[in-house]
C-alpha cells in the first residue's frame, strides 16, 4: 500500500542560518493515527509547514500518497487538510463564510461547499455560531473552526498542529472522539502534541523529534513498554560467567564485572538480587542507567506546564 506520507532526509535551514531540521525521515501509513511529539522548538511546526507549502524545504523529499511535492504540489495539496498551531483566519469573517470560501479555493462548486460547510460546522458544534464574527468565538471554538475548515474538501490526510492547546478537558475529550471517528472512517491523521497522554489516547504510531532530529519512531505500544522499563547497572564482586540468565528478567553482561538488568513495571528488584544470590553472584553497588526517553519526557512535561 502507498504510504499517506513519506519524508526522506528532510532538512530546513531558516534564512537566519538556523538549522531547524537535520535530515529527518518518516513514513506514515494510510489509515494510521500518528503522533509527532517533541518539546518547544523541536521542529514539529517546521515539518508540517513544509508538507503544506508554507515553509520551503532546504533539502530532501516529501511525498503525499506517492505524489512528490516537487513534481505536483497542487495535486498533493488536495489530499491534505491542515489545522495550524496559530489561528490563521480573518477574525472579522463569519465561520460559515470562512469554511465555504475554503471549499471554493479547492474548486468545490457552491452547492457542495454549502452542504459540506453545514455538515462539518454541525459536527464540530459551531452551527449556532455560524453567523457571528469569528473574533467573538472562544479559543476552543476557533480551533474547532479550523478543523471544520481543514475537512471541508475531505482530505485523505489530516494534519493537526497542537489541536488541543488551550482547550479544556471536556472539550479535549470530545475533540478526541471526533478525531477517532474520522480516523475510523479512513482519514489518516497526524497530530503534534506536547502531551504523551494525548498521543497515548489516540495514536498507534509515534515519532519523537528533538533539535530537528527524530530520536524515536515506533509503535505507541512499544514506546509505552520502553517507558515503563527501568534499567539498572549492577557492579558484581565475582567474575561473571559468559552467560547470565535471571528468570523473568532481561539481563545483559556488559563486561566481566558489570551487568545490566531491565525491570518492567510490576517486577521487583528484590527478585533480581535473590536470583543472582542463588547463582553465587554478589552485588557491590547499583545505579540507574539514564533513560534517554525518560529524560525527553521530563523535558516535555516541563515544557508543557
Amino acid at each position: 500500500m502507498i504510504p499517506a506520507l513519506s519524508i526522506e532526509h528532510l532538512s530546513k535551514i531558516y534564512e537566519n542560518g538556523f538549522e531547524a531540521l537535520k535530515g529527518i525521515s518518516l513514513t506514515v501509513q494510510q489509515g494510521d493515527f500518528f503522533a509527532l511529539l517533541g518539546p518547544n522548538g523541536a521542529g514539529k511546526s517546521t515539518t508540517i509547514g513544509i508538507i503544506c507549502s508554507l515553509v520551503s524545504k532546504s533539502g530532501g523529499q516529501v511525498s503525499v500518497f506517492d505524489i512528490d511535492i516537487d513534481k505536483d504540489f497542487p495535486a498533493a495539496k488536495r489530499h491534505i487538510g491542515i489545522v495550524p498551531q496559530e489561528f490563521n483566519f480573518n477574525q472579522f469573517e463569519k465561520p460559515l463564510d470562512i469554511v465555504i470560501n475554503q471549499a471554493g479555493y479547492y474548486g468545490l462548486p457552491q452547492k457542495t461547499a454549502r452542504q459540506r460547510a453545514e455538515h462539518y460546522l454541525r459536527e464540530l458544534g459551531l452551527w449556532d455560531q455560524r453567523k457571528v464574527q469569528s473574533r467573538m468565538l472562544s479559543g476552543g471554538m476557533k480551533r474547532r473552526l479550523m478543523i471544520a475548515r481543514a475537512l471541508v474538501h475531505e482530505p485523505r490526510l489530516l494534519i493537526l498542529d497542537e489541536p488541543t492547546a488551550g482547550v479544556d478537558i471536556e472539550m479535549r475529550r470530545s475533540m478526541w472522539e471526533f478525531l477517532q471517528q474520522i480516523n475510523h472512517q479512513g482519514t489518516t491523521i497526524i497530530l503534534t502534541t506536547h502531551y504523551l497522554e494525548e498521543a497515548e489516547a489516540l495514536c498507534r504510531h509515534i515519532a519523537i523529534i528533538n533539535h530537528g532530529e527524530i530520536v524515536e519512531n515506533t509503535s505507541m505500544k512499544s514506546l509505552l513498554r520502553q517507558l515503563r522499563r527501568e534499567t539498572f547497572v549492577l557492579d558484581c564482586v565475582e567474575d561473571l560467567p559468559d552467560r547470565v540468565t535471571i528468570d523473568e528478567f532481561t539481563a545483559r553482561r556488559v563486561d566481566c564485572h558489570t551487568l545490566e538488568v531491565d525491570v518492567e513495571k510490576g517486577q521487583h528488584v528484590n527478585d533480581v538480587f535473590a536470583a543472582l544470590d542463588r547463582q553465587g553472584i554478589h552485588i557491590s553497588s547499583m545505579r540507574n542507567r539514564a533513560n534517554r526517553l525518560e529524560e525527553m519526557f521530563v523535558k516535555l512535561v516541563e515544557g508543557a506546564s
Binding site: C52, A75, E86, N88, N90, Y106, G107
Partner: peptide, 18 residues
C-alpha cells in the same frame, strides 16, 4: 496585506489554487 498580517493568506497558500 491584511490577510498576510492575520495569516489568513495561508488559506490560499495551502490550497491548490494556482
Amino acid at each position: 496585506f491584511g490577510s498576510k498580517f492575520s495569516h489568513a493568506v495561508e488559506e490560499l497558500l495551502v490550497s491548490p489554487a494556482s
